[in-house]
Simulated assay, not measured.
Amino acid sequence: MIVDCAIYRDGFRTEGPADVSEALDEVRRTGDGFLWIGLYEPTTEEFDFVISEFGLHPLAVEDAVTAHQRPKLEAYEDSLFMVLKTMGYHPDGHAVSTGEVMIFLGHGYVLTVRHGAESPLAQLRAGLEKQPELLRKGPASVLYAVCDLVVDSYLDVAAELQTDLDELEAQVFAPGRAHGVAEQIYAFKRQLVVFRRAAGPLEEPIARLVSDGVLFVPEDLRPYLRDVGDHLTKVTELVEGLDRLLSDILGANLAQVTVQQNNDMRKISAWAALAAVPTMIAGIYGMNFEHMPELRQPWGYPVALGLMALVCTLLHRAFKRAGWL
């Protein structure tokens, strides 16, 4: 479905024909301004008019309809096609969710296609309409603004993940909290995998937009895109830092669990040794041989019990001093 459609001349939104075909013809006839159309999760049937009116490449159209694409930039003879992964953070579930924005850029038009809840562009359009000096740079200004919005959202999500990681780190090193944290760490790693799949592949398309010779990207807009590239580099560095720190936290957690297991095994071994002494003595005297020391002495039974208590007491003190109990 078409969410919004407008013609921009000299950096300002203007009234134009309601029909998309007539609006595009007017822009191309006058040679000034550009047409910006926004669509949200269009079906193949809804996208048919786009294929005929804008002459878009069928492979790019297929990607725009089916979604679930990697971030990329494809250049055709008369258009550019770019895919970006949008991202949002949900504090209730401490989870990252993604959406997609596809951008078609051509002579006199820019077409944005959104998929998923994490790809709002209404505020972006309203913000751009307050920056006529940027809109005067043509349809590529919309491409820059979308890239800038997406990368800035990455920074926001990275900051939220950093806060969650700090809380997880404190939980790992809290006394008696080592067990049961590994599942949370692995879940956090899955969030970082989603993040890296969105941000990592975007570096190459941004680098291409900054380079010379890219169709429909004017020279005076490249410094803006270069700034987006700098922010994206910061994002990737933050994600790599989070991943390294998370690996260290996982290693520390596993070490804590191992130490705790060793302590438990020492305690179990110590108590087993304490139980083995009376068991051994009772087992010897329970063999019922006729000729055994002190077997028929009246004090034999209390002596055997006293021996058990004495040896167990000595072992208990020894284990206690060694830290096993």
Score class of each variant (00 low, 15 high):
174 A>V: 10
6 A>G: 05
271 W>L: 03
301 Y>C: 06
145 A>H: 05
132 P>T: 09
271 W>K: 01
175 P>F: 06
179 H>S: 05
6 A>Q: 13
237 E>H: 10
152 D>I: 06
105 L>A: 03
88 G>T: 14
282 A>K: 13
137 K>W: 01
50 V>D: 00
68 H>W: 14
311 V>N: 01
84 L>F: 10
180 G>V: 10
78 D>Q: 11
252 A>Q: 07
164 D>Q: 15
263 N>M: 06
323 G>Y: 12
25 D>M: 11
169 E>V: 08
225 L>S: 05
157 V>Q: 02
139 P>M: 05
33 G>E: 09
304 A>H: 00
146 V>W: 00
109 Y>S: 07
110 V>D: 05
54 F>R: 00
215 L>M: 11
184 Q>A: 15
278 P>W: 05
258 T>Y: 08
16 G>S: 13
258 T>S: 15
194 V>P: 00
262 N>T: 14
273 A>D: 01
165 L>W: 01
221 L>A: 05
170 A>D: 12
220 D>K: 07
306 G>V: 11
143 L>Q: 01
25 D>Q: 13
256 Q>S: 06
213 G>S: 06
85 K>A: 12
322 A>E: 12
89 Y>E: 09
120 P>A: 13
259 V>L: 10
95 A>N: 15
309 A>R: 12
164 D>K: 12
223 P>G: 09
250 L>A: 14
193 V>W: 04
17 P>H: 09
159 A>Q: 05
234 K>T: 13
22 E>D: 14
175 P>D: 13
258 T>W: 06
160 E>D: 08
71 P>W: 08
64 A>L: 07
93 G>N: 07
313 T>R: 11
99 G>P: 02
260 Q>A: 12
303 V>P: 02
189 K>W: 00
208 R>P: 07
107 H>N: 15
147 C>M: 04
237 E>F: 08
99 G>A: 07
310 L>H: 09
162 Q>W: 00
36 W>N: 09
20 V>Q: 10
257 V>K: 03
148 D>Q: 03
138 G>W: 01
127 G>M: 08
224 Y>A: 00
206 I>P: 00
23 A>W: 00
43 T>Y: 09
278 P>E: 09
244 R>A: 15
1 M>K: 13
216 F>I: 12
229 G>L: 04
122 A>P: 03
263 N>G: 04
287 M>L: 09
98 T>P: 01
183 E>T: 13
168 L>N: 09
299 W>P: 00
259 V>A: 15
145 A>V: 02
170 A>C: 09
35 L>R: 01
229 G>A: 10
177 R>V: 06
168 L>H: 14
188 F>T: 06
179 H>D: 04
147 C>A: 12
236 T>F: 03
324 W>V: 11
154 Y>F: 15
154 Y>H: 09
33 G>H: 05
4 D>P: 02
282 A>S: 12
185 I>K: 00
207 A>W: 07
24 L>S: 07
198 A>E: 01
305 L>E: 11
167 E>N: 08
168 L>K: 07
107 H>I: 02
123 Q>L: 13
278 P>Y: 04
274 L>I: 14
314 L>Y: 09
318 A>P: 00
281 I>R: 03
196 R>K: 15
